[in-house]
């Protein structure tokens, strides 16, 4: 569904992505891991077209995305930190986003209800807490029932109840055959979501295989532990994820 071929991106002299090759398929959940500055967000932004790679190609649904925009109707994106026009009321925000896609048929407002956003609709965006803003981001990502969901640190800043609600939602969506790309520092969250594990380090894909295989390889039962083992064995520098 998404395929990256030799995607390379420089920021100045710094190589953030180095010939990344990836095939991401529908019905699977990909956990995108790596230390800070490993290129996770750049990779996600490249898929979204926010960042334009210096070389290589990206295809979404078999179409190259270069200077294209329509493919983004297939993608629901939840950014790491949701930034919204401060003066807007939440209702206006949702109305606006929906207004931009008047021909979208399936509207999924489930999260607005379950995350308890409905009573806050009159509030202006600047007055919302970081957690509430995260909820807004989540609700927006699922709003148009996209076939691809890209979630950048979806659980960061959310209260435990909301985390559970969101996780359930994510799992349900995945089961309905969607492609899921998730980054998170909280490995236990990934446990239930991820079917594949992609590990980025210094802009390259160091490890990419199904979680089951990874567990078999490492002989560990849980996702978190198998990753820790993997790091030790494979000499991946994983200090960001496994804190003492």
């Amino acid at each position: 569904m998404i395929s990256l071929k030799k995607v390379t991106k420089y920021y100045g002299r710094l190589k953030t992505l180095s010939e990344v090759d990836l095939e991401l398929k529908a019905g699977y959940g990909y956990a995108l891991l790596g230390p800070n500055g490993s290129g996770k967000t750049t990779l996600i932004k490249s898929i979204l077209g926010l960042v334009i790679p210096d070389s290589g190609s990206i295809e979404v649904c078999n179409e190259p995305i270069k200077q294209q925009s329509q493919y983004r109707k297939h993608i629901g994106y939840m950014p790491q930190v949701g930034q919204y026009p401060a003066g807007l009321r939440m209702a206006q925000l949702f109305e606006m986003i929906r207004g931009l896609r008047p021909d979208a048929k399936n509207i999924d407002e489930e999260l607005i209800e379950t995350l308890g956003l409905r009573p806050l609709m009159d509030k202006r965006m600047y007055s919302l807490s970081g957690g509430t803003r995260q909820k807004v981001s989540a609700a927006l990502a699922f709003l148009f029932c996209p076939v691809i969901l890209i979630l950048d640190e979806p659980t960061a800043g959310l209260d435990p109840v909301a985390v559970e609600i969101l996780k359930e939602k994510i799992i349900r969506e995945k089961k309905s055959g969607k492609l899921l790309i998730v980054t998170s520092h909280i490995l236990s969250d990934l446990e239930e979501i991820a079917t594949h594990m992609v590990y980025l380090f210094e802009g390259s894909v160091r490890y990419n295989s199904p979680v089951e295989e990874m567990k078999k390889e490492t002989g560990e039962k849980t996702f978190a532990k198998s990753i820790a083992t993997l790091i030790r064995h494979q000499d991946l520098q994983f200090n960001e994820l496994v804190k003492p």
């Binding site: 926010l50 200077q67 925009s69 493919y71 983004r72 950014p79 930034q83 919204y84 026009p85 896609r101």
Partner: peptide, 18 residues
């Protein structure tokens, strides 16, 4: 000041030119 707004829009199927 509209940077967030632009970011928000860029996640939608809208061309940069637009």
């Amino acid at each position: 000041n509209s940077y967030e707004f632009i970011l928000l829009l860029m996640a939608q199927p809208i061309a940069r030119k637009t």
